[in-house]
């Protein structure tokens, strides 16, 4: 009965999720330390507010947003680590806070910044202990580790103490550890942070296999746009503690329009058509010659002009031709947008 019902439940169901942290206001001046002990004043910081979404079984969701936007707080609430101040979470129909222990055996959690392995012991020993913690039989443990070892190249550091692993090795070992009890749902908080290209590729390949071949539901946070593009079909953006976008990756790209920055140096100044004195940072300019190019001036020096264009809408050559008609171009520099900047834009 129960199992039949569970299959139909979404992997993650979050409704009106919010978390606020209370910190006492630090008094200024004399005896500040003593006074703050008795302070009744609190500053309430709303880290996350009104987050609601549903993730179906088998989805691969990217959860992105700038530092401090509330990504980790959300993940920790979903995984049962933090109790939400408001709202509700259900993982496959179970409340991870009311039934933390029961829920925990169905999820795997990886925090890129810390390890769940035993620091001073060989990698393989950590797996033995974790298997016992989750009640995984020896046969299952060996079979799964065999599989993981192939996919993640674990064999090369099997007997090395965890403290001597490189960051990339440790992360691979940690991801295998999170999957040892074969959870249906995997939370990864910045699993590729600080890794080199090879380690990233290895980890992405493994996550892809987990999702596509084994049907695992995965939610990951990252600052690496490649993680999102190569792995996720769906992306959620959080900014200032609120969900600002939830949809496909293509939809996100369309919504942002991925602006490219072009910095032009003119030999001897330029005249921007339609520009009035003192309004150098005017918004989108209508342009000469009938065809209006949507470009935006973001900075203007004596000889330089920096504009932003949407390369989805405008061809670079057209932009350069346009800019060339404003003065004699000496040099052109192009810069693709940083991911962080893109994120900042969609909630700013």
């Amino acid at each position: 009965m129960n199992t039949v019902k569970r299959v139909q439940e979404p992997a993650i169901e979050a409704a009106g999720l919010g978390k606020s942290f209370k910190t006492p206001v630090v008094a200024q001046g004399r005896f500040a330390g003593v006074r703050s002990l008795f302070a009744r004043e609190y500053r309430v910081k709303e880290a996350v507010k009104g987050i609601g979404f549903t993730v179906e079984k088998g989805e691969f969701v990217g959860y992105i947003g700038p530092n401090g936007a509330g990504k980790s707080t959300t993940i920790k609430m979903l995984a049962g680590i933090l109790h939400p101040s408001e709202g509700q979470v259900k993982l496959a129909g179970i409340d991870p806070h009311a039934e933390r222990a029961r829920c925990a055996s169905g999820i795997g959690v990886v925090f890129g910044q810390r390890s769940q392995l035993w620091w001073d012991l060989p990698v393989k020993d950590s797996y033995d202990i974790l298997a016992r913690m989750y009640g995984v039989s020896d046969a299952d443990k060996d079979r799964r580790l065999d599989q993981f070892a192939k996919l993640l190249d674990l064999n090369e550091f099997w007997d090395t103490p965890v403290r001597k692993l490189s960051l990339g090795q440790r992360m691979r070992a940690d991801i295998a550890a999170a999957m040892l009890h074969d959870p249906e749902l995997l939370f990864l908080d910045e699993p590729t942070i600080g890794l080199d290209v090879n380690a990233k590729r290895n980890i992405r390949g493994f996550l892809k296999t987990l999702n596509e071949e084994f049907g695992k539901t995965i939610l990951l946070t990252t600052h690496d746009m490649d993680d999102i593009e190569q792995l996720c079909r769906r992306v959620m953006v959080i900014g200032g503690g609120r969900l600002t976008y939830d949809g496909t990756v293509e939809g996100l790209r369309r919504e942002i329009g991925l602006p490219t920055e072009i910095k032009v140096t003119y030999r001897d100044g330029c005249t921007v058509p339609g520009e009035r004195q003192g309004t150098a940072q005017s918004a989108a300019l209508g342009t000469v010659g009938g065809a209006s190019l949507p470009l935006r001036i973001v900075a203007r020096g004596k000889h330089t002009l920096t504009v932003e264009v949407n390369r989805q809408e405008t061809r670079t050559m057209d932009v350069l031709r346009e800019l060339g008609s404003w003065g004699e171009i000496d040099d052109v520099e192009m810069r693709e947008p940083e991911f962080e900047e893109v994120i900042r834009r969609i909630y700013g």
Binding site: I81, R102, A104, R114, M133, Y134
Partner: peptide, 11 residues
């Protein structure tokens, strides 16, 4: 924040 890891265990 080391308690995080312990809270993810079914124990």
């Amino acid at each position: 924040g080391e308690l995080d890891q312990l809270l993810t265990k079914p124990l």
